[in-house]
Structures are given as structure tokens and as C-alpha cells.
Design a protein around this nucleic acid. Structure first.
Lengths: 111, 111
DNA sequence: TCGATATTTCGACATATATCGAAATATATA
DNA sequence: TATATATTTCGATATATGTCGAAATATCGA
């Protein structure tokens, strides 16, 4: 019936759950638009391909602990990667997951 | 920052919430794979482009009232369309929404 | 080492969600 | 009209979620 295995379906459900909160979705879009996906492996914070936790919470009207919680959810779902750089913790979108999502919705249309 | 308006972000969040439950995601995939999106307007249940509520609940180990609830959620999110045909109520994926989702994840990669 | 900045952890609480079972509604058919 | 099939509505319940504030942890710079 479906071309996805049961564990893959559960993983996609987790991903969609992570994107189901408007604030988390805004953070994700912030990262998607500020970063340059497709450049897998060539990650470099100085090139502006990542954002720190403080950046992501700006303009969102939620306290830092809530921002942190949301970022943890995005990370748990596998959507983003994180790395400490001094005081800040930089986040960026996992390009592989993003590609998987594009195919998830694209395939039924083109294939 | 983001190319999406606030109300669009909320709408996408609603869509992802609808897909965040494994059983609902299975129903959605059932419809996506059994139907032929892209054929907007040429809907015809006899051609197998839709499935009834009973079909969608099969192999899911949940009672009909729960299936009905999930389908209502998919419909509320705008993912599927419904129409009564005799005793049964046929469901099919809204091709426009599906296309919007494909672009949502595809654009940051190609644009 | 002390203070400032950045982030996380923890506990609390109000709200939302997934599921069930029983009862109601709609449609078809004998 | 009576019965069977398909689906929805309603109320209950257990669990999950979003958010906050306070306190803890990590890092940098004076």
C-alpha cells in the first residue's frame, strides 16, 4: 500500500509533530531561510548558515527556557543539528532530512 | 525573514499537526497512494481516486469512531475533501494542498 | 575569580489529544 | 417498515504539550 515502512512513518510523524507548533515552525523556517541547504558538510557558522538559540527566540514572545525546549524538540525529531561555539549554541537544518521531506510530498505528484 | 505570512505559518502548523499522528499519517498516505493527484477536478470515486472511512480504518486497530475523528482532523486541516456517496463517505486528497506542501520543502533546496 | 551573557533543567499548571464505548443518524435493501 | 451497514456525536479518561519562572550550568572577559 504505502511505500514507507512502519518505522519510517513513525519518524515522519515525529517530524510533523515537531513542526506542528507555530513557534517551532517559525524557528525552523528561520533556519531554513538563513542557511544554505545542499551544502552538506561544508557547515561554517561564520558564513551565516546557522543561528544561535537567542536568535531563534527573537520576535517570538516566549522566554528563553521555552525557546530551549522547542529547539530540543526540533533536534529530537532530527530536523536540526547543534554545536556549541563559545557561549552560544549554533543550530542549522539537517539537509538530508529536508531533502527527505521534499521527496515525501513531491513523489506522489511526479512519480 | 520568512517568505510566509503569519496566517500561512499557522495554516502549515495545522497541517503538520494533522499529520503528526501515525494513524492519521497512514490514512493520508493511503489516500495519496490510492488516488491520482494532479487530476484536479476530474474526481471520480469509481476510478479509485478516493476511499471511504471504512477503508481508511482497515489495518489500523482503532474503532470506527476514532477513525471518524481522525478523518475530521485531516479535513479540518484542509488536507482532504469528502463527499457522501450512498451509505459511504468518500475521501480524497486535495491536490492543491499537496502541491503547496511539496513547494514548502522543495523551494529552499532549489530556489 | 567575579560578573555578564547564553542556555538548560526542573517543577508547576492549564490546555489539548488519542482513544474508547454507547448511542444517534443516514442510507440501502429485503 | 424493519434490519443491516456506514458513519458521527458525545462523554469519559489517560496522556501529552506549551508555557512560565526559578535555579543551575557553561563560557567569556575584565
Amino acid at each position: 500500500m504505502s511505500k514507507y515502512r512502519d518505522d519510517q512513518i513513525k519518524q515522519f510523524a515525529e517530524i510533523f509533530k515537531a513542526l506542528s507548533n507555530p513557534n517551532r515552525l517559525r524557528m525552523f523556517l528561520h533556519l531554513v531561510t538563513c542557511c544554505v541547504p545542499g551544502t552538506v558538510g561544508s557547515f561554517d557558522a561564520e558564513d551565516g548558515v546557522s543561528a544561535c538559540v537567542g536568535d531563534l527566540g527573537r520576535d517570538l514572545d516566549i522566554v528563553p527556557s521555552t525557546v530551549s525546549h522547542h529547539i530540543k524538540e526540533l533536534h529530537r525529531a532530527g530536523l536540526i543539528r547543534m554545536e556549541r561555539r563559545g557561549q552560544k549554541i549554533e543550530c542549522w537544518v539537517d539537509p538530508v532530512i529536508l531533502r527527505g521531506l521534499a521527496r515525501f510530498f513531491d513523489k506522489p505528484l511526479t512519480g
